[in-house]
């Protein structure tokens, strides 16, 4: 089933997080918003973290290159990377068409939920995007 972007949470740095309960754990599937992909314009490279990497909300977890600009990817949550979308870096052109399903980047097992409240809901994130244009 296609992921509903209106139900996702967003970092102000434009990463989305789909938070799901899996047993006792909260797992965040993470990607980049359609707005950010459009702003970045023509992604050509992506560096992803390795499985097992500890990530912190608001800190860098990867990098992308578009039009000769290298930009950081920030983790929207604190936790451990448990899965990486390894097909993505070789198929970045698909991100434009499918940022919320094929475009997932990593899955993170949340180890500290204190930062989740800082994430924006969809209407608030849309407002932020509109103000930055």
């Amino acid at each position: 089933m296609a992921r509903d972007e209106t139900q996702l949470r967003y970092a102000s740095s434009h990463e989305w997080a789909d938070l799901q309960q899996e047993g006792d754990d909260t797992v965040a599937t993470v990607g980049i918003s359609a707005f950010a992909i459009e702003q970045l314009n023509d992604l050509v490279y992506m560096d992803l973290p390795e499985v097992g990497t500890a990530v912190t909300a608001g800190e860098e977890m990867g990098e992308v290159e578009s039009v000769k600009a290298v930009s950081p990817l920030y983790s929207p949550v604190t936790g451990e990377v448990i899965e990486v979308h390894s097909e993505l870096p070789d198929n970045l052109e698909k991100l434009n068409d499918d940022p919320y399903d094929f475009g997932w980047i990593v899955k993170i097992k949340v180890t500290d939920e204190s930062g989740i409240d800082q994430l924006l809901d969809h209407p608030t994130y849309q407002k932020q995007c509109a103000e930055s244009e």
Partner: peptide, 12 residues
């Protein structure tokens, strides 16, 4: 002339 960028949350 060619240019390239590096971005952070604070600037470019």
């Amino acid at each position: 002339l060619g240019s390239a960028q590096r971005k952070t949350r604070h600037g470019i």
